[in-house]
Design a protein around this nucleic acid. Structure first.
Lengths: 228, 228
DNA sequence: ACCTGAACACCGTTCAAGT
DNA sequence: ACCTGAACACCGTTCAAGT
């Protein structure tokens, strides 16, 4: 992966011209979607979503920015490629091998954790047609099969998945919230009830986890009822 | 509101120089946060979040772009002002006047509807310290008081509100998803279970509403149990 | 078919200068 | 105190030209 950094001691000769391999044939393709995706993920991991620019991506790939547009039609495409790769990191391994509740629990937690580190992609996935996202489609297939096998009524499966996902995406944002997000800060306290509840609820040093568990277990428990 | 459009037939004299009122005193302030907020909301409503630029905002206010920076430190501030105004449109009127379940239901639906029209502000609110958002703080106070009055254990209130909000924000995105988001489109169908479930679940022409109701009622039902 | 180089039409933000 | 005008350091994207 990303061979351009720290690969041995190779120091690219700055003034020797292009060092790119060229076959005898007219052209050796330099770019493809796979290389673009992994370079994009590398940059996002290192500098965040705001640090991902088409110019920076091109630089990482040692290519002119305009060259990218031979493989993607817009920056949005790059984000969609990254998103689909991210989905493959979600843990669906327990579906079909453990009770439905337990498999859904592991799936939801890992789904949230993956996107908590990439909240900028949430607006992308939320509107992304799965047509262009094979990994995403595969996840839906796996989850659907498990829900059906667990005894869910056929007509409730997609709605249930969407409900889970909505909660997961919203909760992913919550993970990234600053610790002092609820600090009222005013000298005069016009929100005594809220402040008291805030104090009483601070039992965990990871409040986002407490809220996620509460909501997730509520969803699982209520949906499990439509099984029998 | 926004007096600069269609106010009578006033045609501003283009070549007569500044027509801005100036008192005898050194200066008449032209900008303030209120004017900036309402102008921003007007632009967002007309052209969406992507259409909101500092230059466009300045133009709407008949001012140089740099003038804005006397009142806000960055564009983020403008978005936070808009967000706080949006919160005041959420319906909290039933809290304290109706059973907890019913009040929470109305609150959640209106909260989702408001942000479904402004999904671009979700990343803003999710990380916005309430210190700078008086309306948001007021909503939390109202909701907290009602939850406490309904008999919620003090230490669960904030987590419950956060769980609701997470589900609401995620669901707001879902409203904006294109209708064909789940169209697999491939000739060979590698996702038969998912496709079948999709077909069976399409009972409503507003699938986002079906999923939201399912999840919301699950949350309400499960949380109501911690009351008694 | 695929890449380069130059250009276009924007962005948000800063800052000296004015009043 | 608050505004203007000019400038800065970027953006994403297009397109004629090369090979």
């Amino acid at each position: 992966m990303h061979a351009s950094r720290t690969c041995g001691t190779r120091t690219p000769p700055a003034s020797e011209g292009l060092s790119r391999r060229r076959a005898g044939r007219p052209f050796a393709a330099i770019l493809d979607k796979t290389r673009i995706t992994s370079a994009a993920l590398e940059i996002i991991g290192r500098k965040g979503y705001d640090g991902l620019t088409m110019a920076g991506l091109a630089k990482q790939l040692e290519v002119a920015p305009s060259a990218l547009y031979n493989h993607v039609t817009a920056k949005r495409d790059v984000l969609q490629l990254a998103e689909d790769h991210l989905i493959s990191m979600v843990d669906v391994s327990l579906f079909g091998r453990a009770p439905w509740e337990e498999a859904a629990r592991i799936w939801a937690w890992s789904y949230r954790d993956v996107f908590a580190q990439h909240t900028s992609l949430i607006p992308v996935i939320a509107v992304l047609p799965v047509t262009n996202a094979p990994q995403t489609l595969e996840m839906y297939e796996t989850v659907t099969r498990a829900f059906a096998a667990a005894g869910f009524p056929q007509n409730l499966i997609v709605s249930s998945i969407v409900a889970f996902e909505s909660f997961i995406f919203g909760s992913a944002y919550d993970v990234t919230a600053p610790d002092d997000i609820f600090e009222a800060g005013s000298t005069v306290d016009s929100t005594p009830h809220f402040r008291a509840a805030l104090k009483a609820g601070r039992v965990n040093e990871r409040p986002a986890d407490t809220a996620f568990e509460l909501g997730l277990e509520a969803l699982i428990a209520a949906l499990a009822r439509s099984l029998c």
